[in-house]
Write a protein that binds this DNA or RNA. Structure first.
Lengths: 252, 252
DNA sequence: AATGAGTGTTGCAGTAAGTGCAACGCTGCT
DNA sequence: AGCAGCGTTGCACTTACTGCAACACTCATT
C-alpha cells in the first residue's frame, strides 16, 4: 500500500475527533511538521480538510458532499424510498433503511415519525450492531465463518439490561433471526424503544438491506408494534421484488 | 503538494459519480493500472472505498461516519439545535441551519416541517448558493473583494424566473441583505417555496452561520411567512448570544 | 520596546517509496 | 479448448517524498 496516502488518510479520523493544529497532527502521525503540512495542504486542496480562522484544521465540507453523493448512488435506497414513505404514511412511526458494509451497519435512509416523540438517529451513523433489529438481519445472512468471526470480534456494550450480552447469545439470536426471516429489538438499545425489522433481498436471495419500524413505548406497546410485522414484511418484499427486477415498475 | 495523495484523493469524486472498475479509474487518473490498484487498496484499507460484489469500487461507509463526526463537532450546530427545535415547535415549518466554507454553503442541521407537504433538502448537501436566503446572508458578510470575486465566479442557473440572473444582481441583493440584516428567498429556487432567514454572529460580529424557515405556498403565503421574521431574528440572536458567550447557559 | 518562545513555512540534498513494465493467473465467453 | 479481458504480482528505475535546518511570523513577557 502507499505510505504517503496511508499517512494522509490517517489524518481524517484524527481530525474527526476535533480540530487540531499542525504540530498535533505531525506528532500523532509520527512525521516531521513539514511532511504533515504538505499532506494537510493536499487534503485541503481537495476540500477534505478546512482551515479555520485560528489556523487549526478541521474536516472539510467536501466530505459531506461526497458522503451525500455516495448515498444517492445506492440503488437500493432509491428504489426503497417511496415504499418507506408509504409505510410511514400508514403507520406514522419512524422508518429506517440500513445496509451492512465492512463490519458496520449503517442507516442509509430514514423517514421521521409523525408523532411528536421521536427517536434519535441520523443517516450515515453506524448502528448499534449488537442490538439493532436491522443489524441482526444483515449479519444473520453472512456466511457462517464470517458471521462467527465478526461476532467474536465485536464489543457487547450493555446499553440496557436487555442488550445482547456476549458473542454466544448474539450468534444464537442470529440463528433464530435467520430462521424466522424477521427481527426485533425490544428495548435492547434504549429502554423505551422497540423495533420490528424485515430483510430486503436481491435476485440471488442474499440480504442486501434491512428496514425497520421503530416506536417508543409511550406511543405504542411492543405488542402493538408487533402487529405491524406483516405490513413491514410486505413492504420489504415489495422492495425486494422491485430491486431484483421481478416487479419492473410499480404503479404510484 | 503530494502527487500520490493528490491522485488518491482524485479518485473519490470520480467514484462519487458512480461505481467504477480498476481500468476506468486508472484511465481517468492517467496512471498505470497497477498504480491505481495500490491507491485504491490504500483507500480501501481506510474504509473510504468499498469493493462491491462485482469487483467494482464505490465510496465506502467510513466516509459517512467521518462526515457525521465532523458535523457533530461543529459547535454552532450543537448550540443552535435546541433553539431550532423550539422554533419548529412554534411555527411548524422546516428550519435549516447553514454555514459557508470554501465557496460553498451547506446545511448542517435541519428540523423537518410538521406539515405533510415537505420541501426536499438534505443535511450536507450544498445549497443553491445564488438564491437561498441563508446563502445571501453568509456571502453578504464576506469581505468586499472576496465577495465580488466569488460572485463573478459563480454560475447563475435560472431555477425559476425569479432566480438571481447574474453577478451584478446578486451583488446588489447582497448589499441589500447586508444592510437590512435578514434575507428572503421568494420562489427563487423552487417556484412554490419561500424562506426567511437571519444571521448568527460570533463575538466579533462576523456571521458564522445562518438559519431559515421555509414553507411552500400551499401551506402559507409569502406574506404570512414574513410575519415570522421577528421570531426568526429573535431565535438567531439568542443563538448568537449563546455562541459568543454573552449568554452562558439558557434555562431549558 | 525589545526579547523570546512557539508556530507555520520554505529550499534543499538524500534516498526511500511510488511508478510503469511485463509476465502471470483467473474468469467467462465463443 | 482457446481466447479475450481484467485484476494481480515482482522488479528495476528514478521520481517525488522526507527530514533537516534556517527563516518568517505572531503573540506574550520583561
Amino acid at each position: 500500500m502507499s505510505q504517503t496516502v496511508d499517512r494522509a488518510l490517517s489524518i481524517l479520523p484524527l481530525l474527526a475527533e476535533g480540530p487540531a493544529d499542525l504540530g498535533q497532527v505531525a506528532d500523532r502521525l509520527g512525521v516531521h511538521k513539514s511532511t504533515a503540512l504538505r499532506l494537510l495542504r493536499t487534503l485541503h486542496e481537495h476540500g477534505l480538510v478546512y482551515r479555520q480562522s485560528d489556523q487549526r484544521y478541521r474536516l472539510g465540507a467536501r466530505l459531506f458532499a461526497l458522503a451525500q453523493e455516495a448515498m444517492e448512488n445506492l440503488d437500493v435506497r432509491e428504489i426503497a424510498h417511496a415504499h418507506l414513505v408509504r409505510l410511514n404514511e400508514r403507520c406514522g412511526h419512524t422508518v429506517h433503511l440500513a445496509v451492512y458494509e465492512e463490519n458496520e451497519v449503517l442507516y442509509i435512509d430514514k423517514v421521521e415519525s409523525r408523532y411528536p416523540v421521536r427517536m434519535y438517529s441520523r443517516i450515515g451513523k453506524p448502528v448499534a450492531i449488537t442490538v439493532a433489529a436491522v443489524a441482526k438481519l444483515l449479519l444473520a445472512d453472512l456466511p457462517e465463518p464470517e458471521r462467527r468471526a465478526l461476532a467474536e470480534k465485536l464489543d457487547y456494550p450493555m446499553y440496557t439490561p436487555r442488550s445482547t450480552p456476549h458473542a454466544a447469545a448474539f450468534l444464537q439470536e442470529l440463528a433464530k433471526v435467520r430462521e424466522q426471516g424477521w427481527a426485533t429489538d425490544l428495548g435492547g438499545h434504549e429502554e423505551s424503544i422497540n423495533c420490528v425489522a424485515a430483510p430486503i433481498r436481491g435476485a440471488d436471495g442474499r440480504v442486501v438491506a434491512a428496514m425497520s419500524v421503530s416506536a417508543p413505548n409511550v406511543v405504542v406497546t411492543a405488542d402493538e408494534l408487533l402487529t405491524l410485522l406483516p405490513l413491514v414484511r410486505r413492504t420489504a418484499d415489495a422492495i425486494s421484488g422491485e430491486y431484483s427486477g421481478r416487479t419492473p415498475a410499480e404503479p404510484t
